[in-house]
Amino acid sequence: MSTLRVDWTRCDGHGLCARLLPERIALDEWGFPIIAAGELDDGLVRAARRAAQACPALALRVDKS
């Protein structure tokens, strides 16, 4: 099973992740990601990895749990 995690010290609120994975990521009023609770469905893991790779601050990652 996989989980999305944010390194908050790195995140600059670019917001790309919410565009690439709207199923799981919304943005708060300051532009920082709000990750839906719980583990990723298998069908979303690839898209989640793509979102993590696209993060300009390398703040998003997909952890195997």
């Binding site: 908050w8 010290t9 995140c11 609120g13 708060d28 300051w30 532009g31 920082f32």
Partner: peptide, 9 residues
């Protein structure tokens, strides 16, 4: 000031 939600929130 490291983490956005804390810094703005």
């Amino acid at each position: 000031g490291q983490c956005g939600p804390c810094f703005f929130g």
